[in-house]
Design a protein around this nucleic acid. Structure first.
Lengths: 208, 208
DNA sequence: AAAAAAGTGAACTGGACAGTTTATATTCAA
DNA sequence: TTGAATATAAACTGTCCAGTTCACTTTTTT
């Protein structure tokens, strides 16, 4: 049997629609984006768009889901399986932080936060596919460190919540509000180094 | 001279308008709130509202400014001038965190983040009257601790950014997205205790 | 090449909503 | 008590935009 992608009943222009929607939503937010803008951007007729997505809300949900997945994929990958805890944390932090501060990362954050009242599902979708995955991976990494006798942590969930917050220190909110431009690599490194320092000072097992 | 409040040219119902607007904006956000809802809530005619505020955007800006001021007032007050650094930090953290997690605090956060693209001024207004003041006060407190030989901090700005982030650990984002209900006092205390532990472990001067 | 599937474009509907206008009423200060 | 300031109700304007419809074209399948 040939099994020609039995995925969904995409028409030929499905991807064009998603790409156009992605671009316009990311630029203008949910309310700011008009369906007419999207079809223009996508190079597709309005009827076609509505044949795929019964309404604007579902289209947005689909776009947001895709963005969220790419977020977590980019941002976490597997934590370097290095033996050096500090190095592994630093590496992970860099990936995470650069995503937090990227245009796409910030815009997703703004839209999700702004719309989470109107669409409760979207908040969950985002959380599960982004922050929750980071938390899980970090948790597992820290547990490994504890088992190996390198770390000493009573409340691993708390610790796994603290680390990403430390990586945002100051920068993230300012960026989200549009109060400063993209930090230089040096600035990011300074914040990350500070985060790792604080974190390990508390949780690294005292060298006997 | 009698100097009868030379403040602004408030009419009799100015406060009703602000109160109604506050209630509706906080409930429905900027786009979600219709001016008709607001005048109904305020018990005032549309023409009256428009005689005070030439458009919806300025009304919202005014409401947001007031909310932001009350935020910082509630949330920081003066840091307890206690000699015990740990105690002072814990107290400040409690005030801060309870505001972050309050309905008003969360809703202000959502709206500001969601609208910061459309109204750049609002982001700055919010930041200056809230987070920036927290930062400044914390900075000053930490400097005092350093001067008194109780703390050892190379980068005070970074440290003053880290502490509030630590206080959010995990809880804040979930609350903003509506993924959990208000944490119990015990949960908040656990997060705060963790934050203070991590923070002081790194920055408290080693007892000789 | 014929039939089926997918897409087009342009006009249209209906509702929501910001902001205006007007003729009238209430309040308050002198 | 009178006149100026303030407020009111309600209808109205204009715009924006989501979603629909339809007669027609293009692409794909067989």
């Amino acid at each position: 049997m040939n099994a020609p992608q039995a995925i969904v009943k995409h028409g030929r222009k499905f991807d064009q629609v998603l790409d156009g929607a992605r671009k316009v939503f990311m630029r203008d937010g949910f309310e700011g984006a008009s369906v007419d803008d999207i079809v223009r951007e996508a190079g597709v007729s309005k009827a076609t768009l509505y044949s795929y997505f019964p309404d604007k809300r579902l289209l947005f949900l689909e776009v947001a889901k895709i963005e969220c997945q790419s977020q977590s994929d980019d941002a976490i990958a597997e934590i370097a399986s290095s033996d050096d805890v500090r190095y592994a944390l630093t590496t992970a932090a860099k990936r995470m932080t650069r995503f937090f501060m990227s245009d796409v990362g910030l815009q997703v954050h703004r839209i999700i936060v702004g719309e989470s009242q109107r669409f409760p599902e979207i908040g969950r979708e985002f959380y599960e596919s982004g922050p929750a995955r980071v938390h899980a991976i970090l948790r597992q990494f820290l547990q490994k460190g504890v088992d190996a006798g390198k770390l000493e942590i009573e409340d691993i969930d708390l610790a796994a919540d603290q680390f990403p917050e430390l990586c945002k220190a100051g920068l993230h909110l300012k960026m989200v509000l549009g109060l400063r431009d993209t930090p230089s690599d040096a600035e990011i490194d300074r914040v990350i180094e500070g985060a790792v320092d604080v974190f390990l000072c508390r949780y690294e097992r005292r060298h006997r």
